[in-house]
Write a protein that binds this DNA or RNA. Structure first.
Length: 1030
RNA sequence: GGGCGAUUAGCUCAGUUGGUUAGAGCGCCGCCCUUACAAGGCGGAUGUCGGGGGUUCGAGUCCCUCAUCGCCCACCA
């Protein structure tokens, strides 16, 4: 059998993927002869391509899925993608603008949605292609999309149900308005940025001031144009008490603060005292005026607005008075609700001023701001203008400023839903791991804030509500009657209700459960119009575990695969997604969506920053696969998945000219073109825009962290190659384990231990641990010892057959254990092994099956596990180590065989005697004396191994370097003295001896004895060497 | 402001319930292209376990405190 000496992943992976697919290896069916194991994929957004975070997320899922499948579970990994409402629409709109200079309004709703579908088709293919290339063993024919028919039916049914239960209601709410995209964006799609701005002080005249009363009230704002929508000015109802409270808090803080901050606090206290003199009298006055129902004149708008008392006004800040703009500020909105103030919206959806702004109508915000300031100045009402750093909200999607904006929205009432999701975690029906993430989940849910679900977008699930607004009570009732009398009316399909609005008018809302053209047109025939908004993307995501299984239909898949087994995700969407899936699953199916939630780390770049395309530090799994292969990508990621969050992964450019890896820095990662410091050639990056830059070949962004993993893949490949090259004449045979030599029983015992530890690690989501255990076993034990031992045995005709049986079994088990992490290379080797050893196994050979992917997971065979055997083999390993050490210290040429003499007890002699032949292969040594009488050579390099009470002597006649030997021994002696002193003082401590557990004390004593013995040996060795050199 | 986490070798990270001399990979040094593997083999050097205090016979591990970094939530006229 000829096998290349490197695994060619580029050509092999494709072949393997095709074979798996043809054989339906990852397909799951409803079957009642075995339990299911189910994972639903966190559906990636169709916005773009997958990055390394997805790579990690999906690798971990696939490890679970593949190992469970091998364990005999009917394993379903449900794939799919998310329509990602605003993100996707924003991307398509941006392209529309850039490439055709058109807005979505130029195109219209239908045409835009059509464009987004085209985009989705393209990117979905790319994303699914990336997943397949990584080896993700999803059940591909079941692939869902959150906007497809199945998911849509689930969304409609859920909305209908919640509407029916009155858990969906309509209300006004300040939303984060993106004036560029003309939509509301959710809080988590808003980021803050600090900008230089101004803090303007204005005065509003008091209407008919009485003697002694202030003629003007000063307020301050960072957004002057909003004053046109002011409907009150507030002062604190008890400014004195409020100041007292602030002072008390400062004094409390002063009590336990460090010197550095002391001064600042004292200064604040002083300012507070001054303020009592300068501001308090005025504030008290104003408070009284507010109680009297006095009013101010709002300049420019020329409106009368009340002075009100509200605790939102902070007497310790500014003038102590605050303007109230309920339609454009979240806090003012609350004040407005409390005081029953009108809410005046002065903005159009596109960010220009509307008719309410009077003369300012049509201006955009910066223009309006400038004009307002100018006009107030002319009226003499402008006070100080301070420079100030202002934190402004920006839209994550359009990167333009957010304007708070009052709009009608649909809400989901969370009281009961949130409670149900909290209960599911507190009583353990859902387990969150690591456990510390429970707190965030529970805290967030416990606020039970109602969930605003409308989005002013075109891409998404359109809200299935038809409405008629502004009706009188009688009209609303008669309209409802007409609805009920429609021939198409069906109480199972139609829910409706009449709500009253702020202005006292009535609205009729009709919710339709399923898509039905006839019903829709009948409803529209009554004069109702459909709500233009779509639902928050998380609404459909929340249904994912059951919608993908066919709910609301009672499918057999739902019955069999739900609840799913585990959800694997990252921590930033525990609240947005995980919590909502739990409560929706409970509401719709009556059962939690998953038993376990596993939260995995985030991957950061070498500078500790999150990876993202906008920083240029994002790594495409495809680039890693190109360079290192899919198995290296997966194994490399799996070994990072520790309990510690946030893994740093230094990122490099791969120079397309010389293939060298160039570290990314904050500087070079944002350049359009970079000169390679290795070869001097220039390459381009994702930022290249000019033709000149683009002319250079583009560098892939990868991480050298995958080299280790790639090397491991290669190591495994070569261990397999060695095995396969020595399987000529292999005959399956029954193996009598008890009669096997030590080295074979050692291997079997280790296989048993490693199988158990790997299985436990994967089941406990300790992926890095599993990766480490397998790496150590494969490399340091299977390759470094068993393969070396097998060499002389293969050469011996009598030992050859049994060695073949054991090594084939060893490789077989290793392939099965590694398969979930490294599916391709293991599957490839499995194919070769099936040819060379079609039936294999210890003790009884069996048919392994065509694919390792569908092979049985190894069982930790307790009969093979034998700690005594492992200890005995370890004795041999220590002797080998001792000889190697001596050789290295004497610089003995690798191919020189040295004579060794090993002084040991009879029991050890018996064990080592049959192993004599391996000393040559492992340490280049010939054992010339072994046993209690084995002595030193004339020119001797000794090494004592006290732990097993042995002495190893190497005959150095030809090679001895006495100085080197002496310095080695003297160094050793120094270390021993240090340790002995430490132990002696520890054991001399009465407290230790009397209070520590006896076992610990005894162990210390024993170890001290050993050290002393070793010390004596080394001393005599040194003396003997010294006498030699005279 | 509240919460969570991190800080261990030059770099990236392990370190189970406190218990011999704190580990791995990469990098570094020395010797080797030995027929599975130079993407390799053998050997080696490198640590006041962030600072300080405490509990304990014993602390990388438990407690307090400070510092630095990161994330989440809230707030910011």
């Amino acid at each position: 059998m000829t096998i290349p000496n490197r695994f060619d992943h580029a050509s092999e992976a494709e072949v393997i993927l095709e074979a798996w697919e043809k054989s339906g290896c990852s397909h799951a069916e409803v079957r009642n002869d075995r339990p299911p194991f189910t994972i639903v994929i966190p559906p990636p957004n169709v916005t773009g391509a997958l990055h390394l975070g997805h790579g990690l997320n999906n690798t971990l899922q696939d490890i679970l899925v593949r190992s469970k499948r091998m364990q005999g579970f009917e394993t379903l990994w449900m794939p799919g993608t998310d329509h990602a409402g605003i993100a996707t629409q924003a991307v398509v709109e941006r392209r529309l603008k850039e490439q055709e200079n058109k807005s979505r309004h130029d195109l219209g709703r239908e045409a835009l949605v059509e464009r987004i579908w085209a985009w989705k088709d393209q990117y979905e293919q790319r994303i699914l292609g990336q997943l397949k290339r990584m080896g993700a063993s999803c059940d591909w024919p079941r692939t869902r999309f959150t906007l497809d028919e199945t998911c849509t039916a689930a969304v409609r049914a859920t909305f209908f149900d919640l509407f029916h239960k009155r858990r969906i209601y309509r209300g006004k709410r300040l939303v984060n308005w993106d004036t560029y995209l003309q939509t509301a964006v959710s809080d988590d799609e808003v980021f803050n940025e600090t900008k230089k701005g101004h803090f303007w002080h204005f005065s509003y005249p008091v209407i008919d001031p009485k003697p002694g009363e202030p003629k003007r009230v000063e307020i301050a704002t960072t957004r002057p144009e909003t004053m046109l929508g002011d409907t009150a000015v507030a002062v604190h109802p008890d400014p004195e008490a409020a100041l007292d409270a602030v002072e008390a808090e400062l004094r409390e803080k002063l009590g336990h603060t460090v010197a550095g901050e002391r001064e600042a606090i004292e200064a604040q206290l002083e300012a507070l005292t001054r303020r009592r003199e300068t501001h308090l009298p005025t504030l008290l006055r104003l408070r009284d005026m507010a109680r009297d129902g006095r009013a101010l004149r709002l300049p420019l708008a020329d409106r009368e607005i009340p002075l009100i008392a509200d605790p939102w006004a902070k007497p310790e800040l500014g003038s102590g008075c605050v303007k109230i703009t309920p339609a454009h500020d979240p806090n003012d909105y609350e004040v407005g609700l409390r005081a029953g103030l009108p809410m005046i919206n002065v903005l159009n959806p596109d960010g220009t001023m509307n008719g309410e702004a009077g003369a300012y109508e049509g201006l955009n915000i910066p223009q309006a701001r400038a004009r307002v300031v100018e006009d107030l100045d002319r009226l003499g009402l402008l006070g100080d203008v301070e420079d100030r750093d202002i934190e402004l909200p920006y839209s994550d999607r359009s990167k333009t400023p957010i304007e708070p904006y009052l709009a009608d929205q649909w809400f989901v009432a969370m009281e009961e839903l949130a409670q149900s999701a909290m209960d599911a975690v507190t009583d353990g029906r859902v387990r969150i791991r690591p456990e510390r993430y429970r707190k965030g989940y529970l805290d967030w849910l416990s606020e039970k804030r109602d969930w605003p679900v409308s989005r002013q977008l075109w891409w998404g699930h359109r809200i299935p509500i038809w409405a008629a607004n502004g009706l009188s009570e009688a009209d609303a009732e008669s309209l409802a009657d007409r609805l009920k009398r429609l021939p198409e009316f069906d109480a199972e399909q139609v829910a409706f209700r009449v709500d009253s609005d702020d202005d006292g008018s009535r609205s009729l809302f009709v919710c339709l459960r399923d898509e039905s053209e006839s019903l829709e047109s009948a409803v529209e025939g009554l004069g109702l119009t459909r709500d233009p908004d779509v639902l928050d993307t998380w609404f459909s995501s929340a249904l994912w575990p059951h919608s993908t299984l066919g709910w609301p239909r009672q499918t057999e898949e739902l019955d069999y695969f739900y609840p799913t087994s585990v959800l694997v995700t990252s921590r930033d969407i525990i609240t947005l997604w995980v919590a909502r899936m739990v409560l929706m699953g409970l509401n719709n199916v009556g059962e939690v969506p998953f038993r376990d939630v596993f939260i995995h780390p985030k991957i950061l770049d070498g500078l500790g920053e999150t990876m993202s395309k906008s920083k240029g530090n994002g790594v495409d799994p495809n680039d890693v696969i190109d360079k290192f292969g899919p198995d290296a990508l997966r194994y490399g990621l799996a070994r990072l998945a520790t309990e510690t969050q946030d893994v740093r992964m230094p990122v490099q450019f791969e120079c397309p000219h010389c293939e060298k890896l160039i570290d990314q820095t904050r500087k070079n990662r944002s350049l359009p073109a970079v000169r390679c410091p290795e070869c001097g050639e220039t390459f381009s990056t994702q930022w290249a825009e000019s033709d000149e830059d683009r002319a250079h070949p583009k560098a892939a962004v990868v991480s050298e962290r995958f080299e280790t993993a790639r090397n491991f893949v290669n190591k495994l490949w070569n261990a397999a190659r060695f095995t396969l090259m020595n399987l000529d004449g292999y005959m399956p045979q029954r193996v009598d384990v008890a009669s096997l030599p030590l080295e074979d029983r050692w291997l079997l015992s280790r296989l048993s231990t490693v199988t158990r530890r790997t299985t436990e690690a994967i089941e406990g989501y300790h992926f890095a641990e599993a990766a480490r255990v397998l790496h150590e076993f494969a490399w340091d034990e299977f390759c470094s010892f068993y393969v070396e031992i097998a060499k002389p045995r293969f050469a011996d005709e009598t030992q050859r057959p049994i060695t073949q049986a054991v090594i084939a079994h060893g490789l077989d088990t290793l392939l099965r254990l590694l398969h979930p992490m490294m599916p391709f290379v293991t599957e490839s080797i499995w194919g070769y092994l099936n040819v060379a050893a079609p039936r294999r196994g210890v003790p009884e050979p069996a048919d392994p099956g065509r694919f390792v992917m569908r092979a049985d997971w190894p069982v930790a065979d307790a009969a093979h596990h034998d700690p005594a055997i492992e200890r005995q083999f370890n004795e041999f390993q220590q002797v080998i180590g001792a000889i190697r050490k001596i050789r290295a210290s004497q610089n003995i040429a690798p191919r020189e065989t040295v004579p060794v003499s090993i002084r040991c007890g009879d029991a050890s002699r018996e064990r080592l005697e049959p192993m004599r032949t391996y000393f040559e292969a492992l340490a280049g040594a010939e054992v010339v004396a072994l046993g209690p009488d084995a002595g030193a050579f004339e020119t001797d390099a000794p090494l004592a191994i006290p732990a097993i009470d042995m002495e190893v002597h190497v005959d150095l006649e030809k090679f001895i370097d006495v100085d080197a030997e002496l310095s080695r021994l003297e160094k050793l002696l120094g270390q021993l003295v240090k340790q002995i002193t430490g132990k002696e003082s520890k054991l001399g401590n009465e407290n230790f001896v009397s209070r520590a557990p006896q076992a610990v004390v005894a162990k210390e004593r024993e170890s001290l004895e050993e050290l002393r013995r070793q010390h004596a040996t080394v001393e005599s060795d040194i003396a003997r060497l010294r006498s030699k050199v005279g």
